[in-house]
Design a protein around this nucleic acid. Structure first.
Lengths: 312, 312
DNA sequence: TTTTGTATTTTTATCCATTATAATGCAAAC
DNA sequence: GTTTGCATTATAATGGATAAAAATACAAAA
């Protein structure tokens, strides 16, 4: 794999690597510049960016320096940074926190090992450090996440024990049962407030997706659009507990996505169901939307169960 | 405060203080002895206790030594421990983990300080260490809990920021909105399985409670019975996500209980509602039980809102 | 006066050594 | 053979030093 690209300008080697926060900010700055349509020569005032992102000047300067290294902006002595050329294509894959990546890998590795029987039901955290050759803190973070998702439990004394079969149809069915209780209710919360801007964008995104010829590589994109859809609706509910419950479920699905694959037909049907829900909400028919949501979840569950019976 | 009692037998000072796990085990052993009606001279076999509680012999021995110090059991050379007299009154307040206690105190202290405006919306964890004179790890644990309950959020960069008003009617109303979605659904889960033994005990406990003349000191007891009731029903649902959501809500209420106080009438009504739910479930009328649960939550919410309008 | 560049302080993350605790192995007592 | 007592080993929690990063202060440039 040729990853030489990551360090674009070998001429200007950075003394200190940017922190994850700085990398994230660089991405967000680009996105903001793109959205506001900033042109060549646009002056990036540090203080403004600080306010915008709620951080101090230090990480902002780090982000700007990073963008300078990438050739997006230019530093002028005592006059700060200016935009070299309008931002056209915001990098689609926002820079992921390397730590998140490591966590996810370990999570999946542990889940796999457990499902295939390579790991016993009970295991010491120390054992995981040895088996997967990672730092203890990483193991602890991941175990906490798994515990949070109901996949594993701390034993009294030492060690952790896995719940009966991490990736069982049981886990899936409980997940659906839970979502079926929550997500239709989200749309009926008294403080529910549809973000109409978002709804419009989401509708377009769904339509665009529907037009594309289906390719397997789109699966990940579809998964992301799907999660985002459900999460945003939960956010509109104005109920933080509903939101965090939905986020948790999304996280569970994300960690297990190597198993949650759908067929084309279901994807298209899913898109239509999403669109119908949006339409109902835009018309203020929350009760209808809620019923549609329940139907949508039931349909998804059914497909998932069918697929689970014929594992690849 | 005379806390001399804590070390009953000054004649036999323990070399090493028992660990939290050992203290907990001591309590559970007593409870088990009580339930199985073990008589004087009952031989406590270490290996059996290990299996029963899922730990190794070391903490079990620590627990037994602790019980020996308290005069409950006696150690006989090379023959282990025997029960001195049948366990009659299991200490009602099971030994609480001192760490939990510390966490709870800090939690409440922070919530109070924030509600009274003594703490700003944004604060560094280090600042909390100074203000409340506790260890950093404690602060981090508590902040994690608060974040889990949607009361606080980590800022990008440094510091944490409180959500708008920790103990607002808003938090309460979101909590009820969430429970209303989940708890009635719990009773309709396909794998719902009523624990009939528990149901019987719970009914008796409720009835006993109903007969007692109301005193304010019973408030805590009522709160505990109430949480236990809702949590156990969630457990019977067979859905781990419902269970953990209900547990989370109970935790939120527990941390805020200095505000969630009820009047006598509501307590009695609540008991009756609980009993009606039990009756429906025992008769297999889950649909009815679910409707009753929804009514119960609505009634509780209403009372709570009324009380909130007239803060003491 | 606003903004940048730089230095300084404060906060947060990470690592490593130490200690506390739990798990295990084995011989002796029953 | 089963159970205990004790010693040993393994695991997990704790605390303190260090490094990384962010927040802040202030002088100089625009």
């Amino acid at each position: 794999m040729h990853t030489a690209k990551t360090q674009r300008a070998t001429a200007k080697p950075r003394k200190s690597a940017p922190s994850p926060l700085q990398a994230e900010l660089a991405g967000r700055i680009l996105k903001a510049l793109n959205e506001q349509g900033a042109g060549t020569g646009h002056h990036l005032v540090e203080q403004d960016l600080c306010r915008q992102f709620g951080v101090s000047r230090t990480p902002i300067r780090g982000a700007l320096k990073l963008l300078a290294d990438q050739g997006c902006v230019e530093s002028r002595a005592n006059r700060g940074f200016v935009l070299l050329k309008p931002v056209t294509n915001v990098p689609d894959v926002d820079p992921v926190d390397p730590q998140d990546e490591e966590d996810k890998q370990l999570f999946v590795a542990i889940a796999r090992a457990r499902n295939s029987g390579k790991l016993p039901v009970e295991v010491a955290q120390q054992e995981l450090v040895r088996l997967f050759d990672v730092k203890l803190t990483t193991v602890l973070r991941v175990l906490r996440q798994m515990a949070d998702l109901g996949l594993v439990e701390r034993k009294p004394g030492n060690g952790w024990s896995f719940m009966a079969s991490i990736d069982s149809s049981r886990t899936r069915s409980e997940s659906y049962g839970f979502r079926r209780a929550i997500e239709p209710a989200a749309l009926l919360q008294p403080d529910f407030q549809l973000d109409r801007e978002w709804a419009k964008r989401s509708r377009e995104l769904h339509l665009a997706f529907r037009r594309k010829p289906w390719r397997d590589v789109l699966a990940v994109k579809f998964y992301e659009m799907n999660s985002e859809f459900h999460e945003q609706l939960a956010r509109c509910s104005g109920n933080r507990y509903i939101l965090s419950a939905v986020q948790r479920q999304n996280q569970l699905r994300s960690f297990m996505n190597y198993q949650w694959v759908y067929g084309v037909e279901r994807v298209l049907a899913s898109i239509d169901e999403h669109l119908a829900i949006l339409t109902a909400l835009e018309a203020g028919r929350h009760r209808d939307a809620s019923v549609l949501m329940e139907g949508h979840l039931l349909a998804s569950r059914r497909t998932n169960e069918l697929l689970a019976q014929v594992p690849e």
